[in-house]
């Protein structure tokens, strides 16, 4: 069994695609019209055959209360690996990205948490020596 897809609920697919490509640096993968919405995925340029992120519409009524509660407590929906959290933080901050947690070094792990502007908090993390 392989992990091929990771779904993230997004408030607006166009805005989500722009953020995940222009800010986070992912590449567009699939973009297929599906009625009112699209089957829309992105992939990391560092692993073009790897896991795709599905930017999935958040219009189910259960999504908002769930996300409001975890976002209020600063809990990220998922985590992406980077080589240098501080460098990514500086780069993204300069591009106007909002962080709810500045880089935090804890032993071998450094993390930060950002707002993806379409409803989610995302952690970026690096392991020293990884």
């Amino acid at each position: 069994m392989k992990i091929t897809l990771l779904s993230i609920f997004v408030d607006n697919q166009d805005a989500a695609l722009a953020f995940y490509i222009e800010k986070l640096g992912f590449l567009p993968a699939a973009d297929v019209p599906m009625g009112e919405h699209r089957w829309l995925t992105v992939v990391s340029p560092e692993a073009p055959d790897g896991t795709q992120i599905v930017l999935e519409p958040s219009d189910h009524p259960a999504v908002k209360p769930f996300r409001d509660a975890i976002v209020a407590d600063g809990i990220p929906f998922t985590s992406f690996g980077v080589t240098d959290v501080q460098a990514e933080y500086d780069r993204l901050l300069a591009m106007g990205v909002t962080f709810t947690q500045a880089p935090l070094v804890q032993g071998p792990v450094t993390t930060a948490v950002l707002d993806d502007t379409v409803g989610n908090l995302i952690q970026i993390a690096a392991m020293a020596g990884a």
Binding site: D73, G74, I75, P76, T100, Q101, L104, Q106, G107, V109, T111, V113
Partner: peptide
């Protein structure tokens, strides 16, 4: 600090 950060700090 968010609740998430406080919890990570307490654990780590």
């Amino acid at each position: 600090q968010t609740l998430f950060e406080i919890c990570s700090r307490l654990a780590m």
